[in-house]
Design a protein around this nucleic acid. Structure first.
Length: 590
RNA sequence: GCGCCCGUAGCUCAGCUGGAUAGAGCGCUGCCCUCCGAAGGCAGAGGUCAGGGGUUCGAAUCCCUUCGGGCGCGCCA
């Protein structure tokens, strides 16, 4: 395992100390250590790490926190990685580590490169991450892009944390919207045959992106479709339109380097050999989770066409939802929810026990019922986590970019990617918590300044490589590869406080990965990388005022070599983190 | 009316699932290039963490409540 997480190493030391104290009769046997943490203190003057162990265990041990802390301190002082132990405040134990601890992390980062920080949190458990799932009725817009990038980065992250991840896309090709798509495409088809179709009627998709579909249909069928009744041509046109739209979607995703392993068709659930939706409802009914009944009317203003009637309901209240949910519309067709249940059942049948769905924020009200359904389907054995992705507000130089979806002229994801590049889009989408709204400024993300975090982080990586280039010029006899540096370097020469600070930051990385993976929050990596880049730029600039801190020291090959290892540590972590985010790490940015 | 998300510096946002004196960037003030990339860095000013209660050794973080914003509340997906 390439983790080398200094914090978990120290946590183990604390646990060992606990065992010793139990053996010595200071602590009662079987004491609960689950709340014990070792973490970096907010205030660096408190040392490198702090543990709450004495405060957490004080009550159970029947001792004062500070007294207990002293007992721990005595044991920890003997540890070969620890330089100093202080008991502070209400009972914190502050640890200052020896430089060798940080050097260990640095060497590990250099040695493992892009594998540094990997862990086995997942223990090869399978996870299904479903994301994007945009309707196949048009090109993707920027909001879809955020869910796409988020889902993809999360999938990468979970893989890095030892899960076996399946990336899945749910194709909504069975609802009324694909019939609308078919009718819209049919108009474009007639247009392609030379007919004047006039304005696109209300209720159809007016976008020009359907013109190519019309052309394809015209080429393939000539005017044959015009001689058919709607119920005859509609399935033909619909299937072709969906095929074309999905090709567009895949293209758009590819522009962001996103590729799903599974595209699951909603249509296949209903129109396959077996009606899976009906089967699922039946399955639930047999277990008492589905019944015929009435629903209380919604509070407040009633919908115009509200009528009280008996209907098929899923007993989601038995699983924590607020009301039971209808599975059939008044015309007898399934609700979206019904096919969604069947879809999630199919995921379970494919062996997944951990499901993650990425949805737009407007679907927030849907979470409880879907989790209820998964609980009912799996007997509480499977878990569904739904991550909501908030809206993206597109700006240019601080001014909102106008888009009118009604006229069919919205800013597409593709346009944005083409304008500012994949890296900028991906990084910016991840430089925010998923459930916080995001302002995306097209002017700012291509700026080359600290304002622009994408640039700032990539620049740090490029700067690192610039050091390597210059070093090779200064010393023609450097080992050819990083491994050689590591073998040849005397890293103990790295003893300046600024260098140690940078090593501490590097050592933090495995911990950040772990936290991000547990919380399903890839944005933490983006913020961490920004901090790491900042530390690196700071050390760099110190070299102008204090030449002895420069990475390359002309007449000191040994020191230079040690510092190259340090820079390589930064570069390796930057590249590794960016790789998880799916962002490039350029060697040069001139 | 109910549910979910949110409210942190003038602005845009972090805050490591409960830790010590709450942090960045922008903007403002003042500095640092005989330069390994100044496309950078350093320092300063700026906060009742929306308000009020509670839980405990300890709360921006958890619970309750009020206010304020966003989203959703059969037959749209």
């Amino acid at each position: 395992m390439a983790a080398h997480n200094v914090f978990s190493v120290m946590l183990d030391r604390v646990r060992n100390a606990s065992d010793a104290l139990v053996a010595a009769g200071v602590l009662p046997a079987g004491i609960d250590l689950s709340r014990v943490t070792v973490e970096p203190p907010r205030d660096p003057t408190h040392g490198d790490m702090a543990t709450n162990v004495a405060m957490v265990l004080a009550k159970e041990a029947g001792k004062k926190p500070r007294v207990l802390a002293e007992a721990y301190a005595e044991r920890l002082r003997a540890d070969e990685l620890i330089a100093k132990v202080d008991v502070a405040g209400p009972g914190f134990i502050n640890l200052t580590l020896k430089p060798s601890a940080w050097l260990g992390a640095l060497r590990s980062a250099v040695q493992h490169g892009s594998d540094f920080g990997k862990n086995d949190l997942g223990r090869s458990a399978t996870v299904n991450v479903e994301y994007v799932s945009a309707n196949p009725t048009g090109p993707m817009h920027v909001g879809h892009g955020r869910g796409a990038v988020f889902g993809d980065a999360l999938a990468n992250l979970l893989e890095f944390a030892g899960f076996k991840v399946t990336r899945e896309y749910y194709v909504n090709d069975a609802g009324a919207q694909v019939d609308v798509l078919a009718r819209s495409a049919y108009l474009r088809y007639r247009e392609a045959l030379g007919e004047d179709i006039g304005a696109i009627p209300e209720g159809l998709y007016p976008g020009e992106y359907l013109r190519p579909v019309g052309s394809i249909l015209a080429t393939e069928f000539g005017d044959a479709l015009t001689k058919m009744r709607e119920d005859q041509w509609l399935p033909i046109v619909r299937d072709e339109a969906i095929k074309q739209m999905m090709a567009t979607v895949r293209d758009d995703l590819a522009s962001l380097n996103i590729a799903h392993e599974v595209f699951f068709s909603e249509r296949s659930l209903i129109y396959g050999n077996v009606d899976q939706v009906a089967a699922t409802i039946e399955w639930l009914r047999m277990r008492g989770h589905v019944y015929e009944g009435r629903l209380p009317p919604p509070r407040g203003a009633l919908p115009e066409d509200w009528e009280d009637r008996e209907q098929t309901l899923f007993r989601s209240t038995a699983f924590g939802d607020d009301v039971d949910r209808p599975l059939k519309k008044s015309d007898g067709s399934y609700t979206y929810f019904a096919s969604d249940i069947a879809y999630h059942r199919s995921k379970l049948e494919h062996g997944f026990h951990t499901l993650i769905d990425i949805w737009g924020a407007d679907h927030g009200g849907y979470i409880k019922r879907m989790q209820a359904a998964v609980a009912a389907l799996s007997d509480g054995k499977a878990e569904l986590d739904v991550k909501l992705v908030q809206l993206v507000k597109l700006l240019r130089g601080g001014e909102p970019v106008k888009m009118s979806k009604r006229a069919g002229e919205f800013v597409t994801l593709r346009e944005v990617v083409d304008e500012v590049g994949r890296d900028a889009v991906r990084f910016m989408m991840l430089f925010r918590k998923n459930d916080a709204p995001l302002d995306f400024d097209l002017a700012k993300v291509i700026e080359q300044s600290r304002d622009n975090p994408v640039f700032y982080v990539q620049y740090a990586h490029a700067r690192g490589h610039s050091v390597f280039r210059n070093a090779r010029e200064a010393f023609s006899d450097l080992p050819s590869d990083v491994k050689g540096w590591l073998e040849a370097a005397n890293t103990e020469l790295l003893s300046d406080p600024a260098e140690l600070a940078l090593m501490r930051q590097i050592a933090l990385y495995p911990r950040v990965i772990e936290g991000a993976a547990v919380a399903h929050e890839p944005h933490r990596i983006a913020f961490y990388l920004f901090d790491l880049a900042s530390e690196f730029h700071a050390l760099w600039t110190q070299g102008t005022a204090s030449p002895h801190l420069r990475f390359i020291i002309q007449n000191d090959r040994e020191l230079t070599l040690a510092r190259l290892v340090l820079v390589q540590g930064v570069v390796a972590v930057l590249a590794a983190g960016l790789a998880i985010l799916g962002v490039g790490a350029p060697d040069e940015m001139r």
